[in-house]
Amino acid sequence: MAKSHVTTTVNGDEYEFLCDTEQTLLDILRDELLLTGTKEGCATGDCGACSVMLDGCLVCACLVLGVEAAGKSIETVEGLAHGDELHPLQQKFLEHNGAQCGICTPGMLIAAKALLEVEPDPSETEIRYWLAGNLCRCTGYDKIIRAVMAAAEEMREVRS
């Protein structure tokens, strides 16, 4: 059977690709669209390194099929910065050393951004629970939590 022809929007740009049913959205992003910011840790939904937004909903790209992305709007880490200007979360991750090897970082950033969209002023506990599906083998998490809190604060100040 022929491959499926899929049209989807990633970070505001329209993309078209051909895919086999088995290919996940993660495979498509990385291997077909060459958007390699989104990482693969486990490919089974456990680590969150592949976190992306799918029509405004935080999901693991490894548990979505490429064909399921047809007609949807996807946001990945590549869409966070505006030119050279980093997103406040990216800036605070840098300042607080929230990234070491960096494999978990794109997923952490996307998941944290999703949290701040629904809760601009989260408690530390809320951040820890929200990020429970994002594993990090390096930082011990604390620096990540501090970075998210600092970014939340800055984003609230900018807004008010």
Binding site: G48, L58, C60, A111
Partner: peptide, 9 residues
Amino acid sequence: IGSIQIKGR
């Protein structure tokens, strides 16, 4: 049921 990501699906 799983993380926020899992609950999204």
